[in-house]
């Protein structure tokens, strides 16, 4: 278990270093002449150079990377080019908003998805399975903006149940539901697709496994076979998917937050990208990648906790 843990941690760390380097490269090298971009075509070369020096752009690449990383670790994330506010607070505020939205979607849809996935598996190749599978797959295929638009048309314009534009809810149930339900819906559609599919596949496999045959032929009651033998094994891979999805979710909010004007991290990244606001972009993108990597790590750990083969390995 300890070797497994340390190995996973090390891998995550290596990934993170690579991730940070990619982020740095993408936002530092790709845009080319940052000073010129910011100051526009009418600035003199001297003005551009002065800005480059001020921003530290005259240092060698690796030095700049190191400076950026060491600042980043200390929470010194720079100042937004366009908004002229400290990046740390800006990004964190948006990130928190996204977290609230993401958590709302996950908590609501994951149990439903697993239930339907398991239901499909126990009705393998029968009509109910086909309906659930095809529905799940279609949901998986739909881009968020398509579901988002349809949801908006139906719930805000046709029936007026929810506002067209969402904001961060205050801590009360009506406010949460009113502000988060619509933007969460397209996400929930996607998650349902993923999770129900995984739960179904895992359960079908477990139902066909030798140990399930053993359990049935031991004459155990059906509920005992399902709970203790089938689901205990089949939901293991599903746990991993949920954890990975949790990380992915934060990043994929970009479209939904744009549609619903929700002040989350996706919205921030999109605005920063179109405005070439490099420090904000760097920090926000890195944060998303960090969350993704950490949730992957969490998935591995969860898997280890529930799997005695890994847990007990010396």
């Amino acid at each position: 278990m300890l070797t497994y843990l340390s190995k996973r941690l090390l891998l995550a760390l290596v990934t993170l270093v690579l991730v940070s380097f990619i982020v740095f490269l993408a936002s530092d090298v790709l845009p080319g002449d940052v000073g010129r971009t910011i100051l526009g075509n009418f600035a003199t070369q001297a003005q551009v150079h002065a800005l480059d020096v001020k921003l530290g752009l005259d240092h060698p690449l690796l030095d700049r990377y190191w400076i950026w990383v060491s600042h980043f670790v200390r929470g010194n994330w720079g100042t937004s080019y366009t908004l002229q506010v400290p990046v740390f607070g800006l990004v964190m505020r948006h990130f928190l908003n996204s977290l609230i939205l993401g958590a709302f979607a996950l908590v609501l849809i994951v149990p439903i998805s697993i239930t339907f996935g398991v239901l499909a598996a126990t009705h393998h190749d029968r009509p109910l399975d086909r309906v659930i599978s095809v529905t799940g797959m279609s949901m998986l295929a739909l881009p968020e903006f398509v579901t988002g638009i349809v949801v908006l048309v139906v719930f805000s314009i046709v029936v007026h149940w929810f506002p067209v534009s969402s904001s961060v809810p205050v801590f009360s149930l009506p406010s949460i539901v009113r502000n988060l339900f619509l933007p969460a819906l397209p996400e929930m559609v996607l998650i349902f697709g993923y999770v129900s599919r995984m739960a179904r596949a895992g359960t079908v496999e477990a139902l066909n496994a030798g140990y399930t045959r053993t359990a049935v032929l031991k004459g155990l009651p059906r509920h005992r076979v399902m709970m203790r033998h089938v689901l205990r094994n089949s939901l293991l891979p599903t746990i991993t998917v949920v954890a990975v999805q949790a990380g992915y979710l934060v990043g994929s909010l970009i479209v939904v937050e744009t549609i619903f004007n929700y002040p989350g991290i996706g919205n921030l990244i999109y605005t920063a990208a179109t405005n070439h606001d490099q420090p904000v972009l760097q920090a926000a993108v890195f944060l998303v990648a960090l969350v993704y990597t950490l949730s992957n790590l969490a998935a591995d750990l969860l898997y280890a906790v529930f799997n005695p083969r890994v847990r007990l390995a010396s």
Binding site: A209, G210, Y211, R213, T214, A215, V216, L217, K218, G219, R228, H229, R232, N233, L236, F306, N307, P308, R309
Partner: peptide
């Protein structure tokens, strides 16, 4: 099952529940 007829399989490794 089990009380009238019980079975031992070819592959004991996959016939036992790995998480129990």
């Amino acid at each position: 099952r089990a009380s009238r007829v019980a079975m031992v399989y070819q592959d004991p490794g996959s016939s036992l529940n790995p998480t129990m």
